[in-house]
Simulated assay, not measured.
Amino acid sequence: MFRLVDIADFSRDGLAPYDPSGAPVLVTHVERMWAVVTGRQGDRVACLLDNQPYATHTSLEVLDPLSVPLTHLIATGDVRPELAEHLAFAERMAAQDERPAGSATPVDPGARPRIRSDQQAICDRADVRAEPPSPFGLALLARDVPGGSGVLQGARFEPAPERRDTGWVFFRGDDFEAVSQTVGFDIVTVQEASRAHPDILARLALPVGWAFSVGDGVDDLYEVELVD
């Protein structure tokens, strides 16, 4: 379990992601992450990080070497039969690492949030600051989105922190009310929503007040009116 620095998220922290000057508002939170154990050193284990943190202001990367106290391990998985190949790949990647101090390289607190490259490309296209939601924040997902066809609509309205709501709504068709009365919606995590349709993940960092339409030759980004 790692305590990392992340840009604030309405649904998780009840805080705006940026202050009035435009600087990121930073918070700490805990992420559970997998690592590949490569050896033991007394009461610690040597590991290679095995997933990318969600946090926006950490320099930790996949394959970073770690020394973790045994008391910090919360679960174990299976033996990796391909460990030798994994270590060789990690060594090649380490040779290309341009961070002066590796995973310990300080992160500028005023830097824009580090997010997926496809998410940053969408925000750059809309010319907006990224507001990445917590993967465990909640969203509304129409029941016909997984496996359905036609144009996918996504809109991010004002979040409700007391409900862990990120403000995101995803549906097909042009009429939200009609979808609500016929197809219906499920409340899911943002992580679950991103697995329901391949075009959702790249657009999740769009800020509150933005929407998208994608599919059947359509790929639009636009602002939506926020009403109480």
Rank of each mutant, 00 (worst) to 15 (best):
61 E>W: 06
29 H>M: 11
49 L>R: 00
42 G>D: 06
55 A>L: 01
36 V>Q: 05
60 L>W: 00
83 L>Q: 13
65 P>I: 02
62 V>L: 12
30 V>S: 13
83 L>M: 12
99 R>I: 05
61 E>A: 14
56 T>A: 02
34 W>T: 07
83 L>W: 10
65 P>A: 07
37 V>E: 11
61 E>V: 06
40 R>T: 14
95 A>V: 02
94 A>L: 09
92 R>G: 04
73 L>A: 08
37 V>P: 01
28 T>L: 07
95 A>N: 05
66 L>G: 03
53 P>L: 01
95 A>D: 10
76 T>F: 12
28 T>S: 14
52 Q>H: 11
34 W>Q: 09
57 H>Y: 03
68 V>N: 01
39 G>I: 05
100 P>Y: 07
38 T>H: 05
54 Y>E: 09
67 S>C: 13
85 E>D: 15
73 L>E: 11
65 P>F: 02
61 E>F: 05
57 H>F: 02
41 Q>C: 09
43 D>Q: 14
42 G>F: 06
44 R>S: 08
62 V>M: 12
59 S>I: 00
50 D>Q: 04
55 A>D: 00
45 V>N: 00
66 L>Q: 04
60 L>T: 00
88 A>T: 13
81 P>V: 05
38 T>Y: 05
30 V>A: 13
31 E>A: 06
32 R>T: 15
44 R>M: 11
81 P>L: 06
44 R>Q: 13
69 P>T: 07
102 G>R: 06
39 G>F: 03
60 L>P: 00
45 V>M: 03
56 T>H: 01
37 V>G: 02
49 L>P: 01
80 R>F: 09
41 Q>F: 10
29 H>R: 15
52 Q>P: 00
80 R>G: 02
32 R>F: 11
101 A>R: 15
56 T>G: 04
44 R>C: 04
74 I>N: 05
82 E>Y: 09
35 A>Q: 01
69 P>W: 06
81 P>D: 06
40 R>V: 13
72 H>D: 15
62 V>K: 11
99 R>N: 08
